[in-house]
């Protein structure tokens, strides 16, 4: 399930944010060897201070298993700045209906192989579907995404083949990076959904996550003696309410049965 976090609700999810930056440190710092800044085990850059929008994948236990970041191309974004090598120093595309997607990653350690619900493939597709649907909902028609060649291959075999590229492949660390174009159309979303066999709503409402984060096991079941007191009251009511000798006899018999059952004078000491 995917949670969308932005400037308006990020204060509600400090733990999820921390886990997300830790995942990025493991993927972009350790695994891909990109030139990123890691502090306290978290990878963050200046664009994280510019109120981006994140789509964060959570597993059934509520742990972060994937994430991606979106910024408007009309404002400051990575291709306009730190990824300018990809564009050969050329100015970036600018459009109100084109978002830039960066830092797409999944937790390959926490996830399994194969295609099941807890697989890398499933988490990847779920996040791709969420990115495209969130953009489409916002009236955004295209995404330019900065990825590595491995991710490019993953896109191609998940029904999410880029319709084009901008600039050229440029070295970013152990692996090169490139900028691919994706249309946020029903057709593309349907192809990924069919490939991954995902047909449900991939988003989870923030209220549900907040509720789950604040979840505390219900108080211990009421003390047995309190239940007995309830029964005592019930017995008394039944006896009082009896309008015939037969009813009164039945109520008294019930009281006796309960008294015997609990072996306690507190039960129904009428």
């Amino acid at each position: 399930m995917i949670l969308v976090i932005d400037a308006l609700n990020k204060h509600k999810f400090p733990e999820i944010m921390r886990e997300m930056f830790e995942l990025r440190a493991r993927v972009f710092g350790d695994r891909m060897g990109w030139d990123v800044t890691i502090k306290d085990g978290m990878e963050r850059d200046k664009f994280d201070d510019m109120d981006p929008s994140y789509a964060v994948g959570l597993n059934d236990e509520g742990q972060v298993v994937s994430c991606v970041r979106a910024l408007q191309t009309t404002g400051p974004h990575m291709l306009a700045d730190v990824f300018s090598a990809i564009l050969n120093g050329e100015p970036p595309l600018r459009s109100a209906t084109l978002w830039e997607s960066t830092r797409f990653c999944v937790d390959t350690k926490r996830l399994a192989r194969g295609k099941g619900r807890s697989s890398v493939s499933y988490a990847t597709c779920e996040l791709m579907i969420a990115s495209l649907e969130a953009a489409k909902e916002a009236g955004v028609t295209d995404i330019v995404t900065v990825i590595d060649p491995l991710m490019d291959r993953i896109l191609k075999r998940s029904g999410n083949t880029p319709y084009g590229y901008v600039g050229k492949q440029a070295d970013m660390g152990k692996v090169p990076a490139l900028a691919a174009l994706l249309d946020c159309t029903e057709e593309r979303i349907a192809r990924i959904r069919a490939f991954a066999d995902i047909h449900h709503d991939v988003f989870i409402a923030e209220d549900e996550i907040v509720a789950a984060e604040n979840y505390q096991p219900a108080a211990q079941p009421v003390d047995a003696s309190e239940r007995v007191i309830d029964l005592k009251g019930y017995c008394a009511e039944q006896i009082d309410a009896a309008t015939t000798d037969h009813e009164r006899g039945a109520a008294l018999a019930l009281q006796q049965v309960l008294f015997d059952k609990f072996h306690s004078t507190r039960a129904c000491n009428a």
Binding site: T73, T74, L93, R94, S95, A96, T97, L98, D142, Y163, G164, Y165, V166, L181, D183
Partner: peptide, 17 residues
């Protein structure tokens, strides 16, 4: 040798600029 949508996205960016 690029897709027509790549052409379109460049035109849209030019219009914006």
């Amino acid at each position: 040798s690029i897709s027509h949508r790549t052409v379109e996205v460049h035109l849209r960016s030019s219009r914006k600029k």
